[in-house]
Design a protein around this nucleic acid. Structure first.
Lengths: 210, 210
DNA sequence: TAGATTGTTAATCGATTAACAATC
DNA sequence: TAGATTGTTAATCGATTAACAATC
């Protein structure tokens, strides 16, 4: 399989989401033209993207919705259960822990870590909050695929590093710093950056374009 | 000013964040080479990006940290206070409402809306939760720059639409659907999509690359 | 002045779109 | 078969990087 461009990879979950919604509406087949109209992109791009993974369609017919969705499930690896832990039981950590719908996509929350003694030992939605001191040992003892960082920025890089050393497979970072590590998958979510792009665009509009 | 490419715009908050941290360390000057090393990008790209907005540096010297940061503050428009409301007082809405640090960047949360009678009239961090019925009137009566949508997907497009009609300037959407509207700035945050890219990358690794 | 580093243009690289033969 | 639509290659477009004259 040829190396998948980053841009293509980032569109895959959107394809998956849309196919899932078509399937729920009992739609059996869909063409790249129809997909393009719904997703506001060119039919050409959709066919081009999907063909990195193989020819899933049929000339003159299009794509079978359920079949294509299943292919995407497999490509995205969401048919594999992934063990997840959250480090930081603050606002965002709490929200993610309570947000049930990740479980539907194969992500299983095993534990939460915090260093606040008032929180240690309590639970969020049946999930125990452990002492951060136990983090390394916990990762070593359990196969942890994804470590979610919802801690202050100043701790993020270091906790990411020790999580990697302990054997974690990926970091999902919500701290407002860029976590950079070699040899582990990292996804940075920068909510403030995103909000700033709205601020920028509003300011541009007010200036009459830029 | 020539039209700013999307890719450039998305890098601006990162520049701002880094300059802010340099300033806090009392660093006076910085070269594009140094910035490139810290941010893991080419010096060329940084100079190229900044020059869309003007020549902020000095040959043989580099950039003055405070001055460049101030330019970025102005470019990003975070020197303008933006009025924000949150629609949906669930997990994510709650977390965003409690997350104080947006206020540092010029975003002011005025109100929260929900349709759960048990929540209406209560407060999160001093911010009153209003009945969703009042949303349109509230936007009409107050200059609302940004409407944050932390509601189920099925309501997102419609609430975005009526918010626009009522006069809102931008939508920050956390519902797992793509809100598409003409004539209003929209930023979609798809947490599940982001998590799926980690799943994809882990699956790729396990397959030995793709 | 000499050294450093910018601003800016040109070259390269990658991603998107168009086109169309293949084929269901 | 005729019409539709894919898979795939070629053309276009945009973004990144390299190069270097300008200049502090």
């Amino acid at each position: 399989m040829s190396r998948i461009p980053e841009a293509v990879m980032r569109r895959l979950p959107r394809y998956y989401r849309h196919l899932d919604s078509l399937e729920k509406k009992d739609i059996i087949r869909v063409s790249s033209k129809q997909l393009g109209e719904s997703l506001r992109m060119t039919a050409s791009q959709i066919r081009h993207d999907l063909n990195f993974f193989g020819g899933f369609g049929q000339q003159g017919y299009g794509y079978n919705v359920t079949e294509l969705k299943q292919k995407l499930v497999h490509i995205l690896g969401i048919d594999i259960i992934r063990n997840v832990i959250i480090v930081g039981a603050g606002n965002i950590g709490n929200a993610l822990a309570r947000y049930g719908s990740f479980e539907n996509e194969g992500f299983k929350l095993l534990a939460i870590f915090d260093n606040d003694e008032k929180l240690i030992g309590t639970k969020i939605r049946n999930i125990l909050i452990h002492d951060s001191e136990e983090l390394v040992q916990y990762i070593k003892d359990n196969k942890i695929d994804i470590v979610v960082l919802t801690i202050p920025g100043k701790f993020a890089q270091q906790i990411a590093y020790i999580s990697q050393q302990a054997g974690a497979g990926a970091i999902w970072n919500f701290a407002p710093v860029d976590v950079t590590l070699e040899g582990i998958e990292v996804e940075n979510i920068h909510l403030t950056d995103s909000l700033m792009t709205l601020s920028f665009r509003l300011a541009c509009e007010e200036k009459g374009g830029c």
